[in-house]
């Protein structure tokens, strides 16, 4: 059988598109899922910015363990969300009177994406911060 280089490339390209599209759909949380996760926490209230700090590495070589730290003195609750993960919820912190309103942990990121932290302050208002993290090797397995 004689397959020209051009034909072979075209076929390969088509096969690649077909296999890639469903995979990317299945892996990343859609924007709606992310919005739903935020709404579940805020109850649809307005979310301001400032008063909350999120520390992430700019580039994470390994998406399986990315150190993140969040701090919002006076916050009652803080949630961490990963916008590009299959399930955006990462961790929900709740603070008592003795806590300083901060927490650090290590998280999995499926790929390069924004990590979002939203705090509920003592007066019931919400504030958020987002940080982009570049991930070299994704952390969700296949």
């Amino acid at each position: 059988m004689n397959i020209s280089r051009r034909k072979a490339l075209a076929f390969g390209g088509a096969a690649l598109t077909v296999t890639l599209v469903p995979v990317s759909f299945a892996q990343a949380a859609s924007e709606d899922v992310m919005k739903a996760a935020i709404a579940a926490f805020t109850g649809g209230a307005d979310v301001a910015e400032g008063g909350i700090e999120l520390t992430t590495p700019e580039i994470a070589e390994n998406g399986n363990t990315v150190p993140v730290a969040v701090s919002s003195p006076g916050a009652k609750r803080i949630i961490l969300l990963a916008s590009g993960n299959p399930n955006p919820n990462v961790a929900d912190f709740a603070f008592g009177a003795l806590a300083a309103g901060n927490g650090s942990t290590r998280i999995r990121l499926a790929g390069t994406q924004d990590v979002v932290a939203i705090a509920e302050m003592a007066d019931g208002s919400f504030t958020q911060v987002a940080k982009a993290v570049k991930v070299t090797i994704g952390g969700c397995g296949g």
């Binding site: 912190f93 806590a99 300083a100 650090s104």
Partner: peptide
């Protein structure tokens, strides 16, 4: 002092640090 609900995106051997 504090509590955390963890989801599947928390890494193996979960590490949690906080101030009190």
């Amino acid at each position: 002092v504090m509590s955390v609900n963890l989801h599947g995106a928390v890494s193996t051997n979960p590490f949690i640090q906080f101030d009190m």
